[in-house]
């Protein structure tokens, strides 16, 4: 008995420290989540109230949308091509080659185009947003905006978040077409399908909902990418290190959230 008490006394401080560490990290997480919710509420409020910075919005359309086109296009093209090759290896064993067209078009429109485009854009756009806004924070440019009576959320964050939400579906729609075309190229030129049959099969299996669900996902992912870039940049730590950490966090959180919300949205759409 005595020994047990003694042992406990020995381990109590360690246990206490362990509990403290767990508690502190949970509290920290809740605090960050709360801050993020307030940030989102602020951003949405500023999206709806004037003044609006239309020129900035147009510029962000270019930056986030147009300049992401090569990256998203390449990703979609090669994904579609590889999808055709891989499903051929599987399906040819069961003489089910005719399913290749449907596998390609459904995987691309429902899953691969939105998710891969989201991840690519997170790397390209999310990082650059976080770095840009983080540098503005560190060099007091955000404070300067406030002293010039311009709300930094309105001026910096709203155009980016809107542009992300609007442009990603457009990118994904283009990605859908390019991805299917990639599958078509491989199927007709490498696997020996007739082009008419392939297109017919593609068209037969595709439903409106497949494309729409992909576009809704894309819109959500665009919002996530731009929001995470802005949020981490806006609350960036000091110095080069702070901006570096903000950039990393923006990409990592955006990527993880994309995967999580992809699951949630799929569940909502197809169950």
């Amino acid at each position: 008995m005595n020994l047990a008490v003694q042992k406990f006394a020995e381990y109590a401080p360690i246990l206490q420290r362990l509990c403290q560490a767990i508690g502190a990290s949970i509290l920290g997480m809740l605090k960050a989540l709360g801050a993020l919710c307030f940030f989102i509420a602020d951003v949405v409020r500023h999206c709806l109230t004037p003044p609006f910075f239309f020129r900035h919005l147009l510029r962000q359309f270019m930056d986030i949308g147009y300049y992401s086109l090569p990256v998203v296009g390449m990703t979609a093209l090669f994904t579609g091509m590889v999808l055709a090759l891989q499903s051929y290896t599987g399906f040819s064993r069961f003489n089910a080659e005719s399913a290749i067209a449907s596998v390609v078009v459904l995987s691309i429109t429902r899953e691969l185009a939105p998710v891969l485009a989201g991840l690519m854009v997170a790397g390209r756009v999310g990082a650059s947003i976080a770095a840009e806004i983080g540098t503005m924070r560190v060099t007091e440019q955000i404070d300067a905006l406030t002293t010039l009576s311009v709300n930094p959320l309105k001026y910096l964050v709203v155009p980016r978040v809107l542009a992300g939400t609007i442009m990603l579906p457009i990118l994904v729609l283009i990605g859908d077409i390019i991805g299917v075309y990639g599958g078509y190229i491989v199927s007709t030129h490498v696997l020996g399908f007739s082009s008419g049959t392939y297109l017919q099969q593609t068209w037969d299996v595709l439903e409106k909902m497949d494309v729409i669900s992909g576009l809704v996902k894309a819109s959500a992912f665009g919002f996530i990418v731009a929001l995470m870039g802005c949020y981490h940049g806006y609350y960036s730590g000091r110095g080069a290190q702070g901006v570096g950490a903000a950039t990393t966090n923006a990409v990592v959180t955006a990527s993880i959230l994309i995967l999580i919300f992809n699951f949630i949205l799929t569940q909502v759409f197809f169950s």
């Binding site: 003044p51 060099t139 440019q141 300067a144 009576s149 311009v150």
Partner: peptide, 23 residues
């Protein structure tokens, strides 16, 4: 501001006029 805090994406005149145009 100590470091100037000029907006580096805008030309000098726009920096100076920023508060007039947007504020």
């Amino acid at each position: 501001f100590q470091g100037g805090a000029l907006f580096d994406s805008l030309p000098v005149w726009h920096n100076v006029a920023f508060g007039l145009i947007h504020g």
